[in-house]
Structures are given as structure tokens and as C-alpha cells.
């Protein structure tokens, strides 16, 4: 499978996430779109890892090249899990104060 297909698929998912962040006002949906963008990047990292592995595999049969990409995806998932727990706590706190998840209420830092 050519790498271009994976790149275009990931770019499409990423741009759908960007459109979601730009067009919705619900804080939870915006947060979900950020997760979608993270996953698009993860998919592209795995595809590039397998592409690099494929090019090195022609010269060396026992190679482990490209494993760093998949480990990087693992660490991205770790950071994303931590980020989601803190972010959802912030959204819950915001809902408790303003009784809404509309991000337009957050246009000032005071009050």
C-alpha cells in the first residue's frame, strides 16, 4: 500500500478535527476533536514506522528499524490519557461555575 494513501487519510482526519474545533461551541465536542487529531497523528506515525521498516528490511532481514515510531505512539497515548483526565476535570469545574459548556463564556479570565 503506498504511503500517500495513509498520509491523505490522516490529513483528512486531522482536518475534520480542525473543522470541529473551529465550528462547534460545546467544550466537550472540541475536546473530542482534539482527541481525533491526536489519533490521526498516531496513525500516520505507525504508517511511517512501517514504511521505514520496509525500506530497511530489504537490506537487513533481522532489523528492528522503525520501532521508535510505535513507541512514540505509545507515549502519545500515555500523555493523551493524562491530558483527558485533567481536561475533563477542568470542563466539569467550568460547568459547575457557569452551568454551561459553551466556550464563549470563557472569553474573560476574571469572574
Amino acid at each position: 500500500m503506498p504511503i500517500q494513501y495513509y498520509i491523505v487519510l490522516s490529513l483528512a482526519l486531522f482536518c475534520i478535527g480542525i473543522v470541529g474545533v473551529l465550528t462547534r461551541r460545546n467544550a466537550i465536542i472540541i475536546f473530542m476533536c482534539i482527541e481525533l487529531m491526536l489519533n490521526a497523528v498516531n496513525l500516520l506515525l505507525v504508517a511511517f514506522s512501517k514504511m521505514h521498516h520496509n525500506t530497511v528490511l530489504a537490506a537487513d532481514k533481522a532489523t528492528q528499524a522503525g520501532i521508535e515510531g510505535q513507541l512514540f505512539v505509545f507515549f502519545i497515548m500515555v500523555v493523551a490519557a493524562a491530558e483527558v483526565s485533567v481536561g475533563l476535570a477542568i470542563i466539569v469545574m467550568m460547568f459547575r461555575n457557569t452551568h454551561s459548556v459553551d466556550v464563549n463564556f470563557l472569553n474573560r479570565l476574571k469572574n
Binding site: 500500500m1 503506498p2 504511503i3 495513509y6 514504511m51
Partner: peptide, 9 residues
């Protein structure tokens, strides 16, 4: 850089 590169499925 990405022309004629195949992903190993």
C-alpha cells in the same frame, strides 16, 4: 520523499 514508498502491511 514519499513517492514510490510502500507501507509494509
Amino acid at each position: 520523499e514519499v513517492t514510490n514508498k510502500q507501507v509494509l502491511l
